[in-house]
Design a protein around this nucleic acid. Structure first.
Lengths: 254, 254
DNA sequence: TCCTGTAATATGTCGGAGTAATTGAGAGAG
DNA sequence: CTCTCTCAATTACTCCGACATATTACAGGA
């Protein structure tokens, strides 16, 4: 599906000699700049309080127009990463102001080597939210939800988690649970965290094979939700999160 | 060269009581536009799938430059509310793509009459997260955390919640709890929801006096955290959230 | 110490050139 | 005759750079 070729030479006829932004196919220019600056901030390259002074200077260095740079800054501002005032420049805000749950910010955080402590925080939050979601799903699911989950589970069994199809089925399974909670806020939260966790999954994949067959644990969650057993659903989901944490920790920390 | 455009170079020369954006003092122009469009989307004035077609038309109607309009659109895009593509226009994305936990989006959602179901979802999430936060705080707090919480509690007692100082102390109290969890992700999440809940608090204030003295319940939370009793802290915080939910529900819909 | 002026920097505006995707008309196959 | 595929024109976003304005940090004087 996604085999678009990089569009042949945009207006810039020169080859990228230095610090120009890499611009993907579907990605807009200001999006690329935001990505570059966002990852720089998230990786600690710019610390809170630092100033990205010189609107014109930055735009020149990145070889883009001021408009593009400004729109990128708007994106970062919208996500609470920076704040810019006349004369003072654009300052990186303290970490507590960052929208760490924003999917894009999460992506930037995991673009390089992610901070171990942050990954731990994220899993801790996941361990709080996901079991509660499973509990609600067990109370509110209908026949249709169960069918979708059952199909996803079957697909997971057919293709393993080693394939892209299998991982897609895994996502479908978890999305079906979230959808069954009938809670939009909970849904977007878990989806955000989940997208980041997906990254760790493929990180883990790179390091070594899956240490354990995850299917039985998924089945236990499904059975509990299908039976409407809220307590069992929460417990089973807790086990699932714990396993993911263990795997990720051993794959990362060494 | 100056004569070819006799039209008003000073755009603000005309008084505009037409459909111009209201621009607050500290608020930037594109921020005002984003607010206007954001509230329009959150209030359902634009449904998912609708197109805000015509960059030039919109900019003209709002009497702002295309640049300002575009920067506003960037903000909305960053928050997952819209997506704009060439030729297709700017479409409102499905609700599940919205960053409902973004403080600004939350603010837009509560700018008009908030959706009852959404408020319920939010409180449900709060009932999941806050007790867990209190539990962690009880396990990880140090002397300094306890001191800050104690001071905030004293300030709450002195000024009541009817005064701005009292509400500030309330915020300090809850922030101290969040800070004691040592979990940044949890902290930003609760802070986001909290800011929205603050709104409901003053909504409630407008309707009638506080139905019950909230101090003793806060004290119970404090005592449990200070004692390091995780279970009791979670339980006491659960009570606090439930009370807030009751108050808000009766103040809003009935 | 307080006030005031100035310079530096971000903010807002404008119009135009460039680029990408939708749309529908036309050609060809069944 | 109908259906599908291709392709070009249209249309709306994307990016640019120069200009004008507003705000404010900072320094120098009263």
């Amino acid at each position: 599906m996604g085999q678009d070729r990089p569009s042949t030479t945009a207006h810039a006829a020169e080859n990228g000699d230095s610090a120009k932004v890499a611009r993907g196919p579907g990605r807009r220019l200001h999006g690329a700049i935001a990505h570059k600056l966002g990852t720089a901030i998230l990786s600690g390259q710019y610390a809170p309080g630092d100033v990205l002074s010189g609107e014109v200077a930055f735009a020149e260095e990145l070889d883009v127009s001021r408009s593009a740079y400004r729109e990128a800054i708007q994106v970062l501002t919208a996500k609470g990463l920076v704040e810019s005032r006349p004369k003072a420049g654009t300052r990186v805000l303290p970490r507590t102001r960052w929208n760490l749950l924003d999917p894009e910010v999460l992506g930037w955080a995991f673009a390089g080597e992610p901070d171990i402590q942050f990954v731990r925080d994220l899993f801790e939050l996941r361990a709080i939210v996901e079991p509660a979601a499973a509990r609600l799903a067990a109370q509110r699911r209908d026949k249709n939800d169960i069918k979708i989950m059952k199909d996803a589970l079957a697909a997971m069994r057919r293709h393993t988690l080693a394939t892209e199809l299998g991982r897609a089925a895994d996502r479908d399974f978890h999305n079906a649970i979230l959808n069954a909670t009938r809670n939009d806020a909970l849904q977007v939260l878990s989806a955000s965290i989940g997208s980041a966790v997906n990254w760790t999954t493929q990180y883990k994949q790179r390091a070594r094979a899956l240490p354990r067959n995850p299917i039985p644990d998924h089945v236990r969650v499904f059975d509990a939700i299908a039976a409407g057993d809220a307590a069992a659903a929460a417990e089973a989901m807790g086990v699932l999160v714990d396993l993911a944490l263990e795997d990720t920790a051993s794959a990362m920390g060494g």
